[in-house]
């Protein structure tokens, strides 16, 4: 990780919440995936969502990012001083508002190079007009140069500077995860949603990931994190929300949550393999 500052979003000037989820309920036919979920995240903080498989964590992400539309509830998001509603917007609008995400099963653009992957994200913020790129005017070239600079800075930031020209599919698994994060950061988010970023990571990669998340948060980007590895969660998150069967069963500081009997019960009966990992 370099110490170079990432050209992040406008630094958070105000305190207060970045995200306020209220009573989100999502049903598929007769199956209730989320049942009145509420949570609140402070600006610049790292919040972790944990829970057994099928608890509704990824569904919650999908509701926040516009992939699903919940039947009830609201998710207010403050990119700046004024809040906006996320529910009901299409995914690309949500991304443009400043909520970026990664996927549990990595979804990159496999045949594009690493730097191009990031470019797609960065260019979302470029000046509108599909025809603009057609004439290589001075302004367009300067824009393209700035875009590329920023992409390389982001790749350096996640430690992939030396892999910039490789096709994404040719990167190692852990590198792909970091590239996904770089692409998400490219959209200049105020809030970054990470869906199991440490899944399948080695011990060393987990350590790196902790550093990376701290660095991201250090730039004023709030991070909402789904993760199974309790140790990793405890190392990065100030607060934890526990979901089970689509409901919030506990919330609070890591040590509080770990001691909560409801959480212990939720995890009993389904021992988590990853907890006895590295």
């Amino acid at each position: 990780m370099t110490g170079r500052p990432i050209p992040g979003p406008r630094p958070s000037t105000t305190l207060g919440p970045v995200l306020d989820v209220r009573d989100v309920t999502l049903r598929f036919g007769g199956l209730t995936s989320l049942d009145g979920v509420s949570l609140r995240q402070d600006r610049g903080s790292v919040l972790a969502v944990i829970g057994p498989n099928g608890a509704g964590k990824t569904s919650l992400f999908n509701c926040l990012t516009g992939a699903y539309r919940p039947q009830r509830g609201s998710a207010r998001f403050w990119p700046a001083d004024d809040g906006v509603e996320l529910v009901g917007r299409s995914p690309h609008r949500v991304a443009r508002l400043g909520v970026a995400r990664t996927f549990q099963n990595i979804r990159l653009f496999p045949e594009m190079s690493a730097v191009e992957n990031v470019q797609v994200g960065v260019e979302v913020r470029a000046r509108p007009g599909a025809l603009r790129g057609l004439l290589p005017t001075r302004a367009v070239r300067r824009e393209e140069r700035e875009t590329l600079d920023r992409c390389h800075e982001l790749l350096d930031f996640v430690g992939l500077g030396h892999r910039a020209e490789r096709p994404a599919a040719a990167l190692a698994y852990g590198e792909q995860r970091r590239l996904e994060i770089a692409r998400a950061l490219g959209t200049s988010p105020s809030l970054l949603l990470l869906d199991e970023p440490a899944a399948g990571a080695t011990a060393a990669e987990r350590t790196d990931l902790v550093t990376l998340i701290h660095a991201i948060a250090g730039r004023g980007i709030s991070v909402l994190l789904i993760e199974h590895d309790i140790r990793l969660v405890a190392a990065v998150a100030r607060a934890i929300v526990v979901l089970n069967f689509g409901r919030v069963i506990a919330a609070g500081r890591p040590d509080e949550v770990r001691a909560d009997p409801a959480v212990v019960e939720a995890y009993l009966g389904e021992p988590d393999e990853r907890r006895d990992g590295p």
């Binding site: 990012t65 992939a67 299409s90 995914p91 690309h92 991304a95 443009r96 970026a100 995400r101 996927f103 979804r107 990159l108 653009f109 496999p110 045949e111 594009m112 191009e116 797609v120 994200g121 979302v124 913020r125 692409r183 998400a184 490219g186 959209t187």
Partner: peptide, 16 residues
């Protein structure tokens, strides 16, 4: 290209 390779990811990255 992004749409061709993964439309969901492109949309989530902010591509209209």
């Amino acid at each position: 290209t992004a749409i061709r390779q993964d439309e969901v990811a492109a949309e989530a990255t902010g591509v209209a």
